[in-house]
């Protein structure tokens, strides 16, 4: 079964001091994952960003699998990150843009690439880090073939606005790439509480994942390139 999972963490919305406390991060990271911070050259990254990078990967894997495994419960320490490669000589900069979208056709050398084990599955992650946020998308395909993902800042961080804005963001993208007029396209939820693309009342075979936190929204979906 095809799926996708993503997450975004707005760094303004986290408690940096609390994240650095053992009581907090030990509920997210296993001992072996804590060791990755030193093994993979993250010395220039504040530890709290490392914690939230791994959180965003784990949450993305959970959202990927939730579509496949009914009743799955998010348990961060059971999703094991085996390794994570920072981009070569990457400096974390301010996002500064109106939005960012990638369909894996354009090269993007500033991504953190991870490999994860969860249950019997192997997953791959790609994360993008800016001063304002950390965002991740995961796939079971190492090459992320047909994975599309996007990030956008929003003006108002109220839940209803986040929810509407992320749906409008992904629908705009889908309408721009699907053939023909797509006026009756909308985002709904299936019986597993996962987001789905609906054309009228019909569910389309396009796995989607939505995320929002504070003033940022993000989507991912799987669609063969037209």
């Amino acid at each position: 079964m095809k799926s996708t999972g993503n997450d975004i963490v707005a760094l303004q919305g986290i408690n940096r001091q609390r994240t650095n406390h053992f009581l907090f991060y030990s509920k997210i990271l296993s001992v072996s994952e804590q060791a990755l911070y030193y093994r993979y050259g993250f010395a220039e990254m504040p530890f709290e960003q490392f914690v939230w990078l791994l959180w965003s990967i784990k949450e993305s894997v959970y959202k990927y699998q939730k579509r496949i495994v009914p009743g799955l419960i998010f348990s961060p320490t059971k999703i094991i990150i085996q390794g994570i490669d920072p981009p070569y000589r990457h400096t974390v900069t301010s996002f500064g843009g109106i939005q960012w979208e990638n369909n894996n056709k354009e090269s993007c050398e500033e991504l953190y690439k991870g490999i994860i084990i969860f249950g019997a599955g192997i997953f791959y992650s790609r994360s993008k880090i800016h001063c304002e946020f950390i965002t991740t998308v995961v796939s079971n395909d190492e090459n992320f073939e047909n994975t599309w993902w996007g990030i956008k800042p929003i003006d108002h961080a109220a839940y209803d606005n986040q929810s509407k804005a992320v749906r409008a963001f992904i629908l705009d993208k889908l309408k721009s790439i699907l053939p023909g007029r797509q006026d009756n396209l909308r985002i709904g939820k299936n019986r597993l509480d996962c987001p789905v693309v609906l054309m009228g009342a019909m569910e389309m075979n396009i796995p989607v994942s939505l995320a929002h936190h504070d003033h940022f929204i993000a989507y991912s979906f799987l669609l063969k390139h037209p």
């Binding site: 963490v9 609390r18 509920k27 939230w52 959180w55 419960i73 998010f74 348990s75 936190h213």
Partner: peptide, 29 residues
């Protein structure tokens, strides 16, 4: 509509409020 990023905060706040320790297996429930 609590953001999932706050779930660990809630567990730690509950530990402090009730003076208890919540292990990982219990936290996921």
């Amino acid at each position: 509509k609590i953001n999932s990023a706050n779930l660990v905060d809630i567990i730690i706040d509950a530990e402090s409020k009730y003076n208890i320790e919540i292990d990982l297996d219990s936290a996921e429930k």
